[in-house]
């Protein structure tokens, strides 16, 4: 296969405090690579990653899409914001990082927003609910009940964040996909459909990447 997307250099990060890129991150990178033609055709101007952690995904997106787009990244963990800046800089791309909970600092419209591409690799590990949203690195994986608590907080905001032709790429664990799979997650967002664009088994986890598009 033709490689258009090398994994960004993420050396020099402190993985005691920031989520280290793993199979889930790499599956998202592979999915983006597979979407190259479709993303180029979209011609995105604003690309946002929610919970960017090490910054490896938004950096790869910036390398793939090129400088005719603005790249924003959020993370609730301030050390992850610094790590994202570090990785972007180390790979020579411009990513604007800010410290917030999900997309909460981002301007959204009741009708449709400004974001052409939204990337989200949520904390999806099934954990006790009280572990969700705590400080530091645990925020990177603790997904609470069914591993869905954090994802379910973002889903309702997707229509207000995405531009008319905008789309979201979301990582989900098989365990998060209740009966109906992609459709079940998509049904949380009126006016959108979800398509599974990549799947991979990583140890005991069955990971998939869903793409959400507006139904036109």
């Amino acid at each position: 296969a033709q490689m258009s997307l090398a994994t960004p250099d993420f050396s020099g990060l402190d993985f005691e405090h920031v989520y280290e890129p793993a199979e889930d991150s790499f599956l998202l990178l592979d999915a983006l690579e597979a979407e190259t033609a479709s993303i180029k055709e979209l011609g995105p101007k604003v690309c946002v990653e929610i919970g960017s952690g090490s910054g490896v995904v938004i950096t790869a997106a910036a390398q793939l899409i090129g400088p005719d787009c603005t790249f924003l990244a959020t993370d609730i963990n301030p050390r992850a914001c610094q790590a994202t800046q570090h990785t972007a800089q180390q790979n020579g791309v411009a990513v604007q990082t800010f410290n917030c909970d999900l997309a909460s600092g981002l301007l959204a419209s009741d009708f449709c927003g400004k974001v052409d591409i939204l990337l989200f690799n949520p904390p999806y590990v099934v954990t006790p609910p009280e572990e969700v949203g705590v400080d530091g690195i645990m925020a990177a994986w603790a997904g609470g009940k069914d591993g869905r608590e954090v994802t379910d907080r973002l889903l309702p905001d997707i229509p207000r964040l995405l531009s008319p032709r905008g789309r979201a790429y979301l990582l989900a664990l098989k365990e998060n996909l209740l009966p109906g799979t992609a459709g079940e997650l998509a049904s949380a967002i009126p006016g959108f459909r979800a398509t599974t664009i990549a799947e991979r088994r990583a140890g005991a986890e069955r990971l998939s990447i869903l793409r959400f598009d507006r139904i036109v």
């Binding site: 604003v46 603005t70 800046q85 180390q90 020579g92 411009a94 800010f98 981002l106 301007l107």
Partner: peptide, 20 residues
């Protein structure tokens, strides 16, 4: 490779809002 620090642009400011 660029070693310039990345900082907040006014383009980013234009997309941020208070959500208090």
């Amino acid at each position: 490779r660029s070693c310039r620090p990345r900082m907040m642009r006014l383009l980013t400011h234009n997309m941020l809002t208070s959500h208090v």
